[in-house]
Design a protein around this nucleic acid. Structure first.
Length: 728
DNA sequence: AGATACTCTGTTTTT
DNA sequence: CAGAGTATCT
């Protein structure tokens, strides 16, 4: 399977990074500098040099990236390469765990618990430990547990890993949590990574085999790996030492999830004789966009300083949209999208709207829908997180893993069967006494419960499970799905329970069944467990189809690794981005800034940044205004489009294309205080409350300026708090 | 066991 | 404001 790979399309550092086949390799790749290109070419190059595809392990950040990478490698090689090991850390670990389960004394039919499942377990543990203590919420506990697991803190070290008065209690809950997981034959997300590391430590012989298997390891987005992932990578590459990591410390945005930037910062000292390649030429963005992004991220202290450059022309200015409130923001962003579609050759799919929090999508959704523009929201309620989907999956999960109590509890209660907490508790107790699974306990219900009605209902439930179980392995997955929905009369349940939304929900169920039918099993597992394993690791970005012809909306986090001709970053405002909480520490604030940087560098041709003066949030509104990040943008190449449109016409500012937003404070009236004005006498201004006016005079100076403004017939004194006026 | 009415609480980001 | 959790009723 030899073919030659054309490396002439690469620039010099890219080519050197590709050709450097032996030993640890660090590729510091700035945004848009072609890191994916380096990775795909390196893989293809390795194969062309005779390395067997199945001896190459490539780790990506999302399943989507894995899929794309595989596609690009195939294109380069012009042959299919199914045997390549490519996927996220999580999906690769699942494959390893299933293969090694028996030798490691684990079950291969484990369930993967998502956050909701984890929450159920931790609540149970908390309850058993005497209920909730002050400030020890289930979410908080999960955070601690997750942190320990992603730092690879062992159970014995856990105690010293903690500090504070609740130390003992947290440890107890943690141990109980682990027990419950074990009893349910389930792994949480962090276990998927930690277990293999743990097992490789205890079983060096199996580790040796895997080390021998992988002659080359490549890791993408290395700046967002956590300690456990680092250990795993180091272990697996221990044999050959041929490990290539690619990343950009400026794009590290997942430390809250346990990612450790130190992994990339200390790679060179950690892997001796590491070769480092820097990719600093940006091919994605226009000069202005790149300059703006560079200027913003330069405010961070803790980083490798690099100089990203481009040969591209300057391009259009970065546009700042100042808006009244979130609805106004959505309207103006969509206005701008429509205008750009008209003026340029853009189609809906060329646009992306990015925001800090999922909740912000709503106002955009409203406007887009009203104007009949096709759009797609990525993230938010993920498909496999929807209630109706999780209901169906719960049945499938207990068929694969009858010990999965969380799924059992869910399945047995939808559709409502009149089986409640008490009954489930009894079954659980019986199961643990007899050493049988909870599903089996339900089948032997007559040994547990005497009540006729409940007995009958549980029998019926067991029969459904039984009949579906029998189909396993004999028919297509979609037929199993159909039968399940049929037998549980799930659609009737939806109609009854959700009269308003049952149509959407039914569609989702149908979509799930379709997905089951289309599922292609690439592992040697049975179809059902492999399907379940894969979809638990699926995210919305993985399913997103970029060719739909829609305007896309997603969070800044989800946008990592993507690029679009025209990008809108919404809600770059005080109190929202950076989130107030991030002022706790420089590290957090810098991460917010990197997130902004990631957003900016998604843009190829046009970048827009918007913020609102007021935003609807939990009932009331809160005031915002330009974020500190807006003020970090360089003056060159910015264009403000303000609430006060008359402003632009004002002669006094004709030669000042760049202006900071200014704040107004009106002490003479109550109500929203915002607006802006030049302080020259005679200038036109518009005040949100009083409307259009003309400056008649002013007193004071600096940021304590009082303007006298004629609003038609009435004259008002308005105190204006200016930022600074920036000369052209 | 489940429905209803109420309070509380919390609001990042996600493999 | 919405979703979760709790108390109280049927």
């Amino acid at each position: 399977m030899k073919s030659t790979i054309d490396l002439s399309v690469l620039n010099e550092p890219q080519r050197h990074a590709v050709e450097h086949l032996k030993g640890p390799t660090l590729v510091l790749a700035g945004a848009g500098s072609g890191k994916t290109r380096v990775l795909t070419h390196k893989i293809a190059y390795l194969v062309s040099r005779g390395i067997k595809p199945w001896r190459i392990l490539a780790v990506t950040f999302t399943n989507r990236a894995a899929r794309e990478m595989a596609g690009r490698v195939e294109k380069l090689l012009n042959i299919p390469v199914q045997s390549l090991w490519i996927g996220t850390f999580h999906s690769i670990c699942v494959r390893i765990l299933r293969r090694e389960a028996e030798r490691w004394g684990l079950s291969r039919n484990f369930t993967i618990y998502d956050r909701d499942d984890q929450l159920a377990i931790v609540k149970k543990a908390l309850k058993e430990m005497g209920g909730q203590q002050d400030n020890l919420t289930p979410g908080h506990l999960l955070h601690i547990i997750g942190k320990a697991k992603s730092d690879f803190v062992s159970p014995d070290e856990f105690d010293s890993f903690l500090s504070g008065p609740n130390k003992r209690l947290i440890t107890d809950i943690y141990l109980r949590y682990e027990k419950l997981l074990k009893a349910a034959v389930a792994f949480d997300f962090d276990d998927l990574l930690a277990r293999p590391v743990d097992m490789f430590t205890k079983h060096p012989d199996t580790l040796k085999e895997w080390q021998k298997r992988f002659s080359h390891i490549l890791v993408d987005e290395y700046q967002d790996t956590n300690h456990t992932q680092y250990l795993l990578m180091k272990m697996l590459s221990g044999g050959s030492g041929n490990v290539t990591v690619v990343g950009d410390d400026d794009q590290s945005i997942y430390s809250w999830r346990g990612a450790n930037v130190r992994n990339i910062l200390e790679f060179e000292t950690d892997f001796t004789k590491a070769a480092t390649f820097r990719l600093e030429q940006n091919y994605r963005s226009t000069g202005i966009i790149l300059k703006a992004a560079n200027a913003v991220v330069a405010h961070n202290e803790n980083r490798f300083v690099k100089k990203l450059w481009t040969e591209r022309s300057h391009g259009a200015p970065v546009k700042i949209l100042e808006c009244l409130d979130d609805r106004d923001e959505a309207a103006r962003v969509v206005d701008s999208v429509e205008q750009e579609m008209k003026e340029h050759v853009y189609s809906p799919k060329d646009f992306i709207v990015l925001y800090r929090t999922n909740a912000q999508s709503r106002s955009f959704e409203d406007v887009l829908r009203r104007r009949g523009i096709k759009y797609m929201i990525v993230g938010g309620v993920r498909f496999y997180q929807r209630k109706e989907i999780k209901d169906i999956l719960a049945y499938l999960k207990i068929i694969v893993n009858p010990d999965d109590t969380v799924s059992f509890t869910r399945a047995v209660s939808v559709p409502k069967r009149g089986i409640g907490a008490k009954t489930i508790e009894k079954l659980e107790k019986f199961a643990s006494e007899k050493g049988i699974s909870i599903v089996e306990a339900a089948a032997r219900v007559e040994e547990v419960i005497s009540s006729g009605a409940i007995l009958k209902k549980l029998k019926k439930f067991s029969e459904i499970l039984q009949s579906i179980s029998e189909m396993r392995g004999k028919t297509g997955l979609d037929e199993i799905g159909h039968a399940l929905v049929e037998k549980t009369r799930y659609k009737d349940y939806l109609i009854e329970e959700y009269p308003d939304t049952f149509e959407d929900r039914t569609n989702n169920v149908n979509e799930l069944i379709t997905a089951m039918g289309e599922f292609e099993n690439i592992t040697e597992e049975d179809d059902l467990s492999s399907f379940l394993g894969e979809i638990s690791l699926m995210t919305d970005v993985d399913m997103w189809d970029e060719d739909e012809g829609c305007v896309t909306l997603m969070t800044l986090h989800s946008a990592k690794g993507l690029e679009f001709p025209s990008v809108y970053i919404a809600g770059v405002e005080k109190g929202l981005f950076p989130l107030p909480k991030s002022f706790d520490s420089d590290a957090e604030l810098e991460e917010e800034r990197r997130l902004f940087y990631v957003g900016m560098t998604r843009a190829e041709e046009r970048l827009h940044i918007s913020y609102a003066e007021n935003r609807m949030r939990f009932g009331g509104f809160s005031s915002g205004g330009a974020s500190m990040f807006v003020n970090e943008l360089p003056d060159d190449g910015l264009e403000f489009e303000e609430i006060n449109t008359t402003y632009k016409l004002s002669n006094t500012l004709k030669n000042q294309p760049v202006r900071r937003p200014m704040e107004f404070e009106d002490y003479s009236q109550e109500g929203p205080d915002y607006g802006d004005a030049p302080f020259e006498i005679g200038a036109f201004v518009r005040h949100p409350v009083f409307g259009r006016g003309r400056v008649a005079g002013y007193s004071g100076s600096g940021d304590k300026l009082t303007l006298t403004i004629h609003f038609g017939t009435q004259t008002k004194k308005i105190r204006a708090k200016f930022g600074k006026l920036v000369p052209a």
